[in-house]
Design a protein around this nucleic acid. Structure first.
Lengths: 191, 191
DNA sequence: GAATTTGTACTGACCGGTCAGTTTAAACGG
DNA sequence: CCGTTTAAACTGACCGGTCAGTACAAATTC
């Protein structure tokens, strides 16, 4: 794959992500994506089989980046804060990807449901391995089912990050991280 | 408004909710909604100004039902469990509404963003008033910002319910409720 | 109390625009 | 050279919205 091709695809990913995140995959036209990327329509069809294939590649690409970051964050600092912070950072950097993901992930028989299930598992399993390590080190309360908790934590972070971007953009990332940690550390009866 | 009209609109809401929840507002056609409801296409345009107007009415209708339930649950039992349980029940009963909401709520300049912001506030403010009561009764740990926590709790419940329906349908509602309560009571370091 | 009018709800064929995808011939670039 | 990109015209299926007409019950008239 030539450097030129890679650059073209990157431009297409950027353009598609922006438009699709904002307005949804179905209502964005191929001509718009081409215009936004500053590329001829034919180029899209030279690089991707169809509009759907472009979006699917975009989903894979985004998840790959997120997974990479989580894995590298994991080696640097294995606390829950670090994981939460890294995810918030990713969503802050790619808000449109969050919007795309949240609007497609739970669409039952959607065209990308198969792909998305696998991608979800990728991320959740990274979160899971991290939580498992914490559990083994006795740094989690007993009785927490690690599998369930990881899925919940991933979903929770996704929506909290979106809510932050859309409804409370004035808050800082540290502030949001603290809120999440507060929620996660316990909203139960005062003790 | 005649009983006949009410019945027709209800059929349209049911049909639209099912299709739009599954496949997204943009990719469902008006003809499909009409067919699913067993009604002529013209009837839709007799009852609603446009496809968008139908979806907006649907959004309002759904939120009205949810708000009503939360308010009545509030009077029966003011614990956090009761609130969580009621919401899970609602999402279990109207999964498609959850899918619709999650895929539109954080769409920044979307056509329904204005309406949805208001509807979000309706729900969040109910959750908030309930949490405030708990805080006043010293049943919440100090330092929890009630406003932030309510928004987070609402979003969290929404995605956990969707994840439940889509990826772990075999779990019972009580099981899921306990997981949520576990998360909410604390995933922090063991104590 | 039959005939007629009125209002409301609904019907479905149809129209015009939109959009994914195709085609082609020519230019570009490493 | 060959893989890639461009520009522009074209196709045809699809879809939101329209509109003339139907159904039918309740009111009105004679």
């Amino acid at each position: 794959m030539s450097a030129r091709t890679t650059a073209t695809r990157q431009k297409l990913f950027d353009a598609a992500l922006k438009l699709v995140g904002e307005r949804g995959a179905a209502s964005v036209t191929v001509d718009e994506i081409a215009a936004e990327a500053g590329v001829a329509k034919g180029t899209i069809y030279y690089n991707f089989a169809s509009k759907d294939a472009l979006v699917e590649a975009l989903l894979r690409h985004g998840v790959e980046i997120l997974a990479g970051r989580l894995r590298s964050a994991e080696t640097a600092d294995d606390s829950l804060e670090a994981l939460v912070d890294e995810m918030l950072g990713f969503w802050a950097e790619y808000p449109a990807f969050g919007q795309l993901l949240v609007s497609e992930l739970w669409r039952t028989p959607g065209q990308w449901h198969g792909t998305l299930s696998l991608l979800r598992d990728d991320i959740v399993s990274i979160v899971k391995s991290q939580m498992k390590r914490l559990a083994d080190a006795d740094r989690l309360p007993d009785g927490v089912e690690v599998g369930t908790a990881s899925a919940a934590l991933f979903g929770t972070l996704l929506v909290i990050a979106l809510d932050w971007q859309v409804f409370q953009p004035e808050r800082s990332r540290a502030e949001v991280r603290e809120s999440v940690m507060h929620l996660v550390r316990g909203l139960g009866p005062a003790r």
